[in-house]
């Protein structure tokens, strides 16, 4: 199965985590979500040039959410695609490793 097919698949069923205790499932999912965030941030960093990285940092530091939205719309118009890709990839990677 390729990553794109996994985007909309529930990771619980994909990794067959249904039988794990809830607290364990919760912790794993939290950790997976955290890694996913890291992955996406790395993709952003690698996509943006140095000046844009500085600008993004500035917006985050100053909580300028409106400007941040505009920045992302303009500079990373394919953010959604990046998220899809990383989402599918992390599900695939974990699934592949477990299998």
């Amino acid at each position: 199965m390729v990553w794109r097919d996994l985007i909309s698949k529930n990771i619980i069923t994909h990794l067959k985590l249904q039988n794990l205790e809830e607290s364990q499932r919760l912790m794993l999912l939290t950790d997976i979500a955290d890694l996913l965030q890291k992955q996406i941030m790395v993709r952003l960093i690698e996509f943006l040039n140095e000046e844009e990285i500085g600008e993004l940092l500035h917006l985050l530091e100053h909580n300028d959410d409106k400007a941040l939205s505009i920045f992302l719309d303009e500079k990373v118009p394919h953010l959604e695609e990046i998220i899809f890709e990383e989402l599918g990839t992390i599900k695939k990677d974990l699934g592949d490793f477990l299998n």
Binding site: I7, S8, K9, N10, I11, I12, T13, L29, I32, A33, L36, Q37, I40, E80, I83, F84, L87, K91
Partner: peptide, 13 residues
């Protein structure tokens, strides 16, 4: 939104 997507909902469907 990402967590929702991990659970099969969210942005992708």
């Amino acid at each position: 939104a990402i967590s929702f997507s991990l659970l099969g909902g969210g942005l992708a469907v």
